[in-house]
Nucleic acid binder design. Sequence first.
DNA 1: CTCGCTGCAAAGTTTTTGCACTTTA
DNA 2: TAAAGTGCAAAAACTTTGCAGCGAG
Lengths: 161, 161
Amino acid sequence: MARSTIRKAPEIDIDGLLGKFETFLQKKSLKLTSQRRQILEKILEMDKTHFTADDLVDQFRNQRPRVSKATVYRSLSVMVEADILEEHQFGDSYKVYELSEGRPHHDHLICTSCGKILEFFNADMEKLQDKVASSNGFHPTHHSQKIFGICAACWGKGVRS
Amino acid sequence: MARSTIRKAPEIDIDGLLGKFETFLQKKSLKLTSQRRQILEKILEMDKTHFTADDLVDQFRNQRPRVSKATVYRSLSVMVEADILEEHQFGDSYKVYELSEGRPHHDHLICTSCGKILEFFNADMEKLQDKVASSNGFHPTHHSQKIFGICAACWGKGVRS
DNA sequence: CTCGCTGCAAAGTTTTTGCACTTTA
DNA sequence: TAAAGTGCAAAAACTTTGCAGCGAG
């Protein structure tokens, strides 16, 4: 049976990311500002596989000159376009981001008790998705698959919902 | 090969729905108010497989006494709890609802060009999802799978993104 | 007659925008 | 130095809530 896998984010190289970002920005006649660089650094420093815009705003709360909320939001959009970040909408009202750099496509298992997010990749599932799309006349561009449930740890503690 | 299917919503029976709703409300010591009844009626009248809270608010715009926005939102929550409606968060910032009554579980294909939503069900996919969850120690409760792409019609018009 | 429900407007959350000023290329 | 970016505060978009009166059981 094809094994589903959980991976740890590989150690990430800021220079590689910056290079990729710069290439994108140049192509679009956009600029690599100090703020954009700082945001990228904070994303790596935080070392969270998934974070929100607000997590990032928090990082700058006690810093001056502070990077503003508006800039954080604007930069996140640019980074998503640059394929530096992936944007997800899990159950909640806010968006969740993760680095896409060096990380193959994957989907998510979300624990509805503790909020833990596990990543998985299953090749059979990917094939099946393409099959479903094309048999309905769709030309798939991307997908989002989330499986909600109770993780092993919570289940062990007796949580059942 | 297991065929994926697209279904039309079956003709829906208001009395059945109301009955189910009442049973739920009684169990929870909640009340079947005229507004809740009207909202359920409008949902059926609209005859949309997927609708938003705002679609529903619109239905009451030219009616008096008007059913308020707050009541619409509050009722949608109750109906989700009662398993009368399913709530989805597709790519956008607002929630999308659909009747769950009499409709087996299914997932969605979403056209990023025209917004069309197709439903599908694929038994192999469901099995695979359970397998992935349990092999990661998860006890799955539900899932959300969305495949984004260009539908046949848009593709025919030359849309490629 | 007691809770739960309603309408309204106000407040909450997350994200976006207008504008004068600053910075990158 | 021109075009793009920034900070700030205000606005937008969607949803929730406080409260005083209303209505279902």
